[in-house]
Every structure is written in structure tokens, then in C-alpha cells.
Design a protein around this nucleic acid. Structure first.
Length: 116
DNA sequence: CGGCTGACGACCT
DNA sequence: GAGGTCGCCAGCC
């Protein structure tokens, strides 16, 4: 059964109370200098179909947070909403960790930085 | 209370 | 191969 159908028919709900805390916890295991994706986080939490909800969880984070949200990029290695102020902040934070971000908003050598 | 949007990604035309 | 669609939708007009 595909993850899709599993999610559709599945008896167990992944999203719910404490979901954002699980995202937080998991994200904190990603070391500086590495990046991960929404889909990978979602998959680690149970199903890639909730990738979007990982996005929601991060969007809900307070401005000043100890959660390394900047280490999350999309499945193609692009930073959040290229061109936005948030994307620029993210690029600055990543470069501070020796992760090169191109002008197009994509992490250079994404595959090797990717943390699983 | 209904409709729309969205820090995404996989499946289906 | 390139759009369109929907997911466990969840929050915000």
C-alpha cells in the first residue's frame, strides 16, 4: 500500500496535540552544517503526506526561537519562499554554518549536506 | 459558518 | 514531461 493510501485509510493520526513539539525535537537533532527537508521530517514522524503540516508547524514558531528552522529546505534543496525576507535570513543563518546558498536560493551540494 | 491559502510533496492526467 | 489535484488538511479571513 502506498504511503498515500496508508495515510488516507490509516487508523493512526500523526498530526495532533504535540505534533509541533515532535517537529521541534526532531529538528534539534539536525546538526549545524546540515540541512533536512519538510518531507524527510514528515516521513520520520510517520508519513511524508504531512510535509505540509511540518511547514505549518515551522510557520507557527515564534520569531526568536531556539529551533533551527533555517536547516529545513524543500525537497529540491531550495530555501523557503525564495526572494522573501525569510529566505534571506535563512541564507544568512546557513552560510554562518558553512552551508553555501546560491543566489537562486538553492543549497549548493544539497545532497551531501542533507541530513537523514 | 464557508471559503481560501499555504515554510510541501506524491500521485494522476 | 509538465501542469493539476489532494492529503490526516489546519488556520485565517
Amino acid at each position: 500500500m502506498s504511503p498515500y493510501e496508508e495515510a488516507r485509510h490509516g487508523p493512526h493520526r500523526i498530526v495532533g496535540p504535540g505534533f509541533h513539539a515532535r517537529v521541534h525535537e526532531l529538528l534539534c537533532t539536525v546538526p549545524a552544517g546540515a540541512v533536512t527537508t519538510y518531507g524527510d521530517l514528515a516521513g520520520a514522524l510517520g508519513s511524508r503526506t504531512v510535509a505540509r503540516h511540518v511547514g505549518h508547524a515551522l510557520a507557527a514558531l515564534p520569531e526568536r526561537s531556539d529551533v533551527p528552522w533555517h536547516r529545513v529546505v524543500d525537497g529540491a534543496g531550495f530555501v523557503t519562499r525564495p526572494g522573501s525576507a525569510a529566505a534571506r535570513r535563512q541564507a544568512v543563518l546557513l552560510r554562518r554554518e558553512q552551508v553555501v546558498v546560491g543566489r537562486d536560493g538553492r543549497v549548493a551540494d544539497f545532497a551531501s549536506h542533507r541530513f537523514v
